[in-house]
């Protein structure tokens, strides 16, 4: 249970609700939160203020579309374009149902696209289901923190 989940989200309410949802679903993974796309990339690439972070990729990235500085699609593009990062599962979590956003995301190689429900109960269920699948059930690509430990 050492896999990290990276949440890239600028809305503090949604961050709090996501934490609550993970708690309710008893998902024990560490939740790392980045508030904008630039910081998220620094974290993933272990640059800037995150240069000293331990090696290893998160099990999954929960990515919002609308982010300050570098938006979700740009983060996705960067992740898919970087050798050490490109196989990290990415789930787009967004308020947008705009067809062009969905199409673009899939064209850039997103694994899943989930529209954040407005109703709390549905939100919790959606987040919990995502967490359970991607962080617990799914076997992450090698290079994720859990996998790194396993082969140590």
């Amino acid at each position: 249970m050492h896999k990290e989940i990276l949440l890239v989200e600028d809305n503090p309410d949604d961050v709090e609700l996501t934490r609550l949802a993970f708690d309710e679903a008893k998902i024990a993974n560490r939740l790392v939160v980045m508030g904008d796309g630039a910081e998220a990339l620094d974290y993933l690439l272990r640059e800037g203020t995150h240069a000293d972070r331990a090696e290893g990729n998160p099990a999954v990235i929960l990515l919002d579309l609308k982010l300050p500085k570098v938006n979700g699609l740009e983060v996705l593009k960067a992740v898919r374009g970087t050798a050490g990062l490109k196989s990290i599962p990415v789930v787009m979590l967004t308020s947008s149902q705009t067809e062009s956003d969905v199409v673009q995301s899939y064209e850039l190689g997103v694994n899943a696209y989930v529209v954040k429900p407005v109703e709390f109960k549905q939100f919790v269920t959606a987040i919990a289901d995502l967490g359970v699948f991607w962080a617990v059930l799914n076997e992450p690509p090698p290079g994720s923190l859990r996998a790194a430990r396993r082969y140590e």
Binding site: D13, D14, L17, P117, V118, F123
Partner: peptide
């Protein structure tokens, strides 16, 4: 949607 989600959830 986002602020509505906040009101509804909290």
């Amino acid at each position: 949607r986002a602020p509505l989600r906040s009101i509804e959830s909290f």
